[in-house]
Amino acid sequence: MSVDPLLVRARGLWEALAGVPVSFAPSGGVTVVVSPGSQLCPPSWTGIVVLGDAAIVTAPTEVAARAVSRSLASVPADSLTRGDVVRAVLPVTEVLGPAALGYVSSDDFRPSAAVGAIEHLDPGHQDLRGLVGSAGPEDRDESGLEEITSPAFVVRDGTDVIAAAGYRTWPESTAHVSVLTAPRHRGRGLARQVASAAVAHALAAGLMPQWRARPVASRRVASALGFRELGSQLSLGLDHNKLRQDAVGAADGTAVPGSRA
């Protein structure tokens, strides 16, 4: 059976971000490890990343890892990042995601022709502040534009920056793409144009572009540029007191493992 090199490379990234030795199982399924320093999720949370037919999960403690391993053992890989599914089997207090994970190779990249001039700005340039300020907190956080390390590729309306894209360099030679368009200028294809310039820059540098997104509109832009959604990511805040109680109950036979009762 042929191996998808882009999938292999994407898995290598998230294995490195796990913070401890772990691999996506070649035969599929879920691999759970304890990693308090995992970058799959916020500190003290549990992170789930599915790529292809396999998943890796990092938990902050042994108790959490055992509970997650028991509870998710029978869940199909394509359902592991569904909030309703994990809430049914684990004491979830908070959820981030799910976010689709898309990747593109040089061969699959479909660049978008720019209608107007695309300007290059230094990351953190003051002219980006107006664009960031025009977006709501959710759009701003989703875009990650304030975290880019590459040049910002922008389109202006007069002197105002109305769309911008760039990327932050991640481990394993990965370019994590960020895109933002001013709300009143959306629907004109500007996100695709500036993102195309950012992706082309990343590929020329030998990096693997990654597009992580929740909104459907953002995912459509990625698809138009040739990105393939290879998996998804979900972060869980768990009730650790409940996990400890369940662990004690399971040990003396008074509770059902994974129960939320």
Results as ranks from 00 to 15, higher is better:
residue 4 D to Q: 09
residue 7 L to G: 04
residue 18 A to G: 09
residue 20 V to T: 15
residue 27 S to F: 03
residue 31 T to F: 00
residue 38 S to C: 07
residue 40 L to M: 07
residue 42 P to F: 13
residue 50 V to R: 11
residue 50 V to T: 13
residue 56 I to F: 05
residue 58 T to W: 04
residue 59 A to Y: 05
residue 60 P to G: 06
residue 64 A to D: 09
residue 64 A to H: 00
residue 65 A to Y: 05
residue 67 A to L: 07
residue 74 S to M: 05
residue 77 A to E: 11
residue 83 G to L: 02
residue 85 V to T: 12
residue 86 V to H: 07
residue 88 A to C: 03
residue 95 V to I: 15
residue 95 V to T: 11
residue 97 G to R: 05
residue 104 V to P: 01
residue 113 A to K: 14
residue 115 V to H: 11
residue 116 G to Q: 09
residue 118 I to H: 01
residue 120 H to A: 15
residue 130 G to N: 08
residue 132 V to I: 15
residue 132 V to W: 10
residue 141 D to E: 15
residue 142 E to K: 07
residue 143 S to Q: 04
residue 144 G to L: 09
residue 148 I to K: 12
residue 152 A to E: 03
residue 158 G to K: 02
residue 160 D to Y: 00
residue 164 A to H: 02
residue 164 A to Q: 02
residue 167 Y to V: 00
residue 167 Y to T: 02
residue 168 R to M: 14
residue 175 A to Y: 06
residue 176 H to D: 15
residue 183 P to F: 07
residue 184 R to Q: 14
residue 192 R to Q: 14
residue 192 R to M: 08
residue 193 Q to T: 10
residue 195 A to L: 07
residue 199 V to G: 04
residue 202 A to Y: 06
residue 206 G to W: 02
residue 207 L to C: 03
residue 209 P to N: 06
residue 213 A to D: 01
residue 213 A to Q: 06
residue 221 V to D: 01
residue 224 A to E: 12
residue 224 A to Y: 00
residue 228 R to A: 15
residue 232 S to V: 02
residue 232 S to A: 15
residue 233 Q to M: 11
residue 234 L to Y: 10
residue 238 L to I: 12
residue 240 H to K: 03
residue 247 A to K: 05
residue 249 G to M: 10
residue 251 A to G: 02
residue 257 P to D: 07
residue 261 A to C: 05
